[in-house]
């Protein structure tokens, strides 16, 4: 469950709860014979009715703002997904997806998380470590869709982006660059080639990542990445970022190697080893005695 969802809920429940003590406090007064009938809302029945209406309202508001339950959108079969989940994921995530000491709960992570984590080979995790590395994908697209559908039934979470979400034809590359430099480069590097985080964790390179997976990563915030919910980066902005990454990484390097786009460290190493090495070799050659 997303934190912002629960914060949506909090004020509404508080308001509903406030009705009850009010009603209870006044209830003994109703037993005393009165000159006039109390208004309905002052009577026990009225208080209960009010509570019912308030709760109903909260529910309605919640269902309006809560992310759509993804089991409707996910094309896969939740039933088949459950079988796969029990066989491959439950040892860490629990048989109900409730999580364990070995893995986090999957309630509310949504179908998008499953498609990202399993679709990039990060899950199932081969061994515990600082973070799950990108790996070969162990499941077919269909199986991934099934698991995504199943996990989506555990609780509402971000659903898999649609083809319209990923339509980059209208994207503003320059604005994407602005957003990228403000939000992404500090971890993923200026050229998207990745960077180190603390304690062996890292932000991976994004240049080979498919637009769908980049979109899902922004939506779900895998591993150490923050969530960029639609309220922070609108779907349009997400498309701009993806378009920028794709355009700038496809820009041809003006040489035979860009030295991994890792910045001046790689350039300095190359300068010392190759450039100075070549010059020293030439100096030795020039000062050799004629044989």
């Amino acid at each position: 469950m997303r934190p912002e969802d629960s914060s949506d809920l909090a004020p509404a429940t508080a308001a509903a709860g406030a009705v009850e003590p009010d009603a209870v406090e006044r209830a003994p007064a109703a037993a005393v014979p009165a000159r006039t009938r109390k208004p309905l809302r002052r009577r026990p029945l009225g208080a209960s009715l009010l509570l019912l209406v308030a709760l109903g309202l909260v529910g309605a508001v919640y269902s309006l703002f809560a992310p759509a339950n993804a089991d409707v959108d996910a094309p896969g079969s939740a039933q088949a997904g459950r079988e796969l989940f029990l066989a491959n994921c439950s040892s860490c995530h629990g048989t109900q997806g409730q999580g364990s000491s070995a893995g986090p709960t999957l309630v509310g992570v949504g179908a998008a998380s499953v498609e990202f984590q399993v679709g990039t080979g990060r899950m199932p995790l081969a061994q515990p470590g600082a973070q799950a590395p990108r790996d070969y994908v162990r499941f077919s697209d269909e199986e991934i869709a099934d698991m995504a559908a199943y996990v989506a039934t555990l609780g509402p979470g971000p659903s898999i982006p649609s083809d319209e979400d990923l339509d980059l034809s209208e994207a503003d590359v320059t604005r994407g660059g602005d957003i990228f430099r403000t939000n992404c480069t500090m971890c993923h590097n200026y050229a998207g080639s990745g960077g180190a985080l603390t304690e062996g964790k890292y932000a991976p390179s994004v240049n080979q990542t498919s637009p769908r997976h980049i979109y899902e990563a922004m939506l779900t915030g895998p591993q150490n990445m923050p969530v960029f919910a639609d309220s922070q980066l609108t779907p349009e902005m997400k498309r701009d970022v993806i378009a920028y990454i794709k355009t700038s990484s496809e820009h041809p390097s003006p040489g035979i190697t860009g030295l991994g786009a890792l910045g001046p460290s790689a350039e300095g190493l190359f300068g010392w080893v190759v450039a100075l090495g070549l010059l020293l070799a030439c100096a030795v050659w020039l000062t050799q005695k004629a044989k």
């Binding site: 430099r181 200026y190 910045g263 001046p264 460290s265 010392w272």
Partner: peptide, 17 residues
């Protein structure tokens, strides 16, 4: 790298050797 903006920074920011 893009234009300088004091609110931005990039991983792999190193000086020349």
């Amino acid at each position: 790298y893009g234009p300088y903006d004091p609110s931005e920074v990039t991983a792999g920011s190193q000086p020349d050797w």
